[in-house]
C-alpha cells in the first residue's frame, strides 16, 4: 500500500536529512565545485569569453566535480539501506508489521529520490550562484535552462549509483561489504576504466606517430585551432581519433562516461585532448538529440538495478 511506503519514506527522509553523512557530502560537493571554478575559470575563460559564454567555464567546473560527487551521494544513501536494516535487526521488526515487503523498498526508493533531488539541486544552485557572484559573470536564460537540465541529469546519475548500491545492499548481509563493492565499482568507472581503455587502445593501435611541435610555444590563434593540421600532422590526428573511438567503446560500459558525454556537450567542455577545439556551446535541443543514447543509458541503468533489487528483496525470505 502506498500509505505504508510513504510512512517509511517519511521516516527515511527525516533520518537522512538530519544525518551528518548527507551534509558532509553536500558540503564537500559545494566546496569542491566552487574551488574548481577558480582553477578552471582562469585557464579556459579566454576561450569561452571569445565564444561569448564565460559562464560555461563555471558550469563545466561544477559538472566535473558533480561527476565525482554525485555517485558518492547515491552510494552513501544506499549502501546500508537494506543490509543495515538486516544487520541492526530492524528489518525483522518492520516485516512483522501488516505491510508488504514492497512497501519497505518503495519507501526507501521514494525517500532516496527526494533526498538526491534536494541535495543535487541545492548544491548545484548554491555552487553556481556562489561562483557567479565570485567571478562576476552575467547569466542568461539559456544558462539557467542548461543548469536545470544539468541538475536533472545529475539527479539521474546519482540515482543510478543509488540503484546499483541498493542492489548490492539487497544482496549483502553486511553493509561493509556493500560499501566496499559500491565504492570499488565507482573507482573502477571513474578512474580505472578510462586508464584501461587508453591502454587497450594503445595496444590495439600501436604507439602513436612521432610528432614535431611545441605546444608550449603555441600562439593564442594556434591554441584555438589546437587540432588543426598546421599544428598536428593528419596522421597523428587520425591516430588520436581512432584511439578515442576505441576508448569510447570500452568506456561505454561505464555510466560515468554517458553522464560526462551529456554534460560536456551541455557546457561545451572537452573530455579528451582531441576535443579541445570544441569550445562553442551546442543548443539544448541539439545536446538532447546528439546525446540521446547517453540519456537513454543514464535512465535505463537505474531502472535495471532498481528492478533487480526489487525482485531480490521481495522474493528473499528473511527469518
Amino acid at each position: 500500500m502506498i500509505s505504508d511506503a510513504l510512512s517509511i519514506a517519511r521516516k527515511e527522509f527525516t533520518d537522512t536529512i538530519t544525518s551528518k553523512r548527507l551534509w558532509l557530502i553536500v558540503g564537500v560537493l559545494l566546496l569542491f565545485s566552487v574551488a574548481s571554478t577558480y582553477s578552471t575559470i582562469f585557464r579556459v575563460i579566454t576561450a569561452f569569453q571569445q565564444a561569448g559564454r564565460p559562464v560555461a567555464s563555471v558550469f563545466s567546473a561544477i559538472a566535473t566535480t558533480m561527476a565525482y560527487m554525485a555517485p558518492l551521494l547515491g552510494i552513501a544513501l544506499a549502501f546500508d539501506a537494506i543490509s543495515g536494516e538486516r544487520e541492526r535487526g530492524t528489518l525483522r521488526i518492520l516485516l512483522s508489521r501488516p505491510i508488504y515487503r514492497e512497501d519497505v523498498i518503495n519507501g526507501k526508493i521514494i525517500s532516496a529520490l527526494a533526498v538526491i533531488s534536494l541535495a543535487v539541486t541545492l548544491s548545484s544552485f548554491a555552487a553556481v550562484s556562489i561562483s557567479i557572484l565570485l567571478h562576476n559573470i552575467a547569466v542568461t536564460m539559456d544558462d539557467i535552462a542548461r543548469v536545470c537540465l544539468f541538475i536533472v541529469f545529475s539527479i539521474v546519475f546519482s540515482f543510478a549509483y543509488y540503484a546499483f548500491s541498493l542492489f548490492i545492499s539487497t544482496l549483502s548481509s553486511k553493509s561493509s561489504h556493500s560499501l566496499i563493492i559500491s565504492i570499488g565499482i565507482w573507482i573502477f568507472f571513474a578512474f580505472i576504466l578510462s586508464a584501461i581503455s587508453s591502454l587497450i587502445a594503445t595496444a590495439v593501435l600501436g604507439p602513436p606517430p612521432v610528432r614535431s611541435f611545441q605546444a608550449f610555444n603555441m600562439s593564442q590563434r594556434q591554441f584555438r585551432n589546437f587540432t588543426s593540421p598546421s599544428i598536428f600532422p593528419q596522421e597523428y590526428l587520425d591516430y588520436m581519433r581512432r584511439e578515442a573511438e576505441i576508448s569510447s567503446m570500452i568506456q561505454a560500459f561505464s555510466i560515468n562516461y554517458h553522464y560526462t558525454q551529456i554534460t560536456s556537450l551541455l557546457f561545451g567542455y572537452a573530455t579528451r585532448p582531441i576535443e579541445f577545439s570544441r569550445r562553442t556551446l551546442t543548443s539544448i535541443p541539439t545536446v538532447i538529440s546528439t546525446r540521446l543514447i547517453d540519456i537513454v543509458v543514464l535512465i535505463v541503468f537505474p531502472i535495471v538495478f532498481l528492478f533487480a533489487s526489487y525482485m531480490i528483496f521481495t522474493r528473499r525470505q528473511e527469518k
Binding site: D4, S7, R88, G89, T90, R92, I93, L94, S96, R97
Partner: peptide, 25 residues
Amino acid sequence: LLPEGFGFYDHMTALENLVFLATLD
C-alpha cells in the same frame, strides 16, 4: 511478534520508535 535478533533505530527515542511502528500497525 517479538522476533529473535530484532533491533531498533538507535538514533530515535523509544517513543519515536514505537510511534513509527504504530503507524505501520
